[in-house]
Design a protein around this nucleic acid. Sequence first.
RNA 1: GGCCCAGUAGUUCAGUUGGUUAGAACGCCGGCCUGUCACGCCGGAGGUCGAGGGUUCGAGUCCCUUCUGGGUCGCCA
Length: 599
Amino acid sequence: MIFMIYKGENITRTHMCGELNAHDADKEASLMGWVQRRRDLGGVIFIDLRDRSGITQIVFDRKIDEEAFKLADKLRNEFVIAVRGKVKKRPLENVNQKLSTGEIELLVNKLIILNKSNTPPFSIEDDINVDESIRLKYRYIDLRRTHMQKNLIIRSKATKAIRDFLYDRGFLEIETPMLTRSTPEGARDYLVPSRLNPGEFYALPQSPQLFKQLLMVAGMEKYFQIARCFRDEDLRADRQPEFTQVDIEMSFVDVDEVISLNEEMIAYLFNNILDINVAIPFPRITYKKALEKYGTDKPDLRYGLELVNISDLVSKSDFKVFSSTIKKGGLIKGINAKGCASFSRREIDSLVELSKNFGAKGLAWISIEPDSSIKSPIQKFLTEEELYNIIGRMGGKPGDLLLFVADTAKITNFVLNQLRSELANKLNLVDDNKYNFVWVVEFPLLEFDEDQNRYVAIHHPFTSPMEEDIPLMDTEPLKVRAKAYDLVLNGVELGGGSIRIYYEELQKKMFNVLGISEEEAKEKFGFLLEAFKYGTPPHGGLAYGLDRIVMFLTGSENIRDVIAFPKTQHAACLLTKAPSKVDPKQLEELFIDIRDTKK
RNA sequence: GGCCCAGUAGUUCAGUUGGUUAGAACGCCGGCCUGUCACGCCGGAGGUCGAGGGUUCGAGUCCCUUCUGGGUCGCCA
């Protein structure tokens, strides 16, 4: 096959393949792109030519141009070509309604094959059903699909909208190092050995946290960055080892200023991309309330099914499962599954099974039949009064199914949260067109880690406690609330942040509570404590998971669909085959020996 | 690290109680065809059944181990 050298040929692209329409009829036009499909009728050859913008049908006819027609016989899927010809309005009966360019076609009088192509391993169509590992191996082909192109276009538009908004509000986009130091606390770091400093390592940033605080010390006042972050933890449908944060930090602000700026930004973004009006301000719920009503700090507010605490009603019950749970300091809470008394035994059993899978010992249920009679395996353990009170508290009406978990607060909340979301799906209560934002505020500052036998920061060690709770740090650390806030959308955490500690004494106190010794604090964070001595403004900010935001904007179920070159669950890139072994010489330069990798 | 799902032609799948030469559709290759747009018609090629081991006269099918991809719990300040 003869391939033309493009240079020296005289086709210049005049239009994109999605552009031409009836108004361009009889014009001379030149297109470039990929062969989407070929329909060879013998005397005439139709090609669907595709570029990023769309598809145009081009026609090769012996009577129009013999040479182009002969060459067109060689065309196959995904060949890259340049064509020139005349735009022809199609007769009415030949109009293709499915194409934006369906009213016209291009009668080709000049064809240049710019490149041939192997037959692709799967076809470039939107509704494909191909194993994802094949898509990832040939990601450059997968990304030719309109669906994937649309996702990346939306991602690009979203970052532009965010930049536009923040530039407009006086923010500076500042880059921070990718090679930085490993810090204790938080996720596992990705480490990078240093050739010039044998035996020492950089860490890739988990987030630009410390640098953005130092930029506040530096007087930058308003900073943002679209920052790549790295965490060496296990992957999920919405988690990748490298991901992108929209990182924001401001000086001289408190919680309300950060929240209101971000509400405006999110409203601007969703309006800009999805053309929907997002009502601001967003509702706020305290962490405590969120756990009470939903059992989670990221509640989905699109539906009800709220959790109800009945602990006080059954603390003295003869039903030991309930009363002993209370004695041990646990919780008994329930959900009223409205209208679900009609569930079959099998359906109820599957809810019980689900609860057990998530750690509950069981799931108690009370079914209020349409005739107001009660069906329940625990009825015989409860007094009439207890039953009456429980049903009353739960708002139980004929036809309702009441579900209860009795366990530690942690398990009770966790299981009922899972149950709530399962029920919502089962009952079709989840509306994909709703965007229910909520700020979760007043997170606890600390939690106790049983494994390490010490307090750890829930957010991070630089989060400021609420002023009125500072005295509690010495007496009841678990009761200290933080100036921390998360933005939650439909049960997904989009981002979170806090007002930071900005003076040395408080930061030292925080390290102290965390059991980080003065020497260790000095060794790991000495530079920050030092910086705090030089006039640090009060400051705070927030960071979003950009990938998750884009998942919402594109309606993606999977984070890999909004990342051009994502990694598999084993953190591998099937395209480049990273990670890989390296040349022993490289290891030698880095003073690294590989031990036996079999455990 | 635990639990669950999947792996058969380039792709998506079927494959009976373990039994002849492992099938289909799409794609691919060749031929015919001047109005197709999922073009049509005729013909053809294409398989280490993820890998290794075991049971058996005989394994795509049963058992064990392992690899890969996915979901999830732990983990992710």
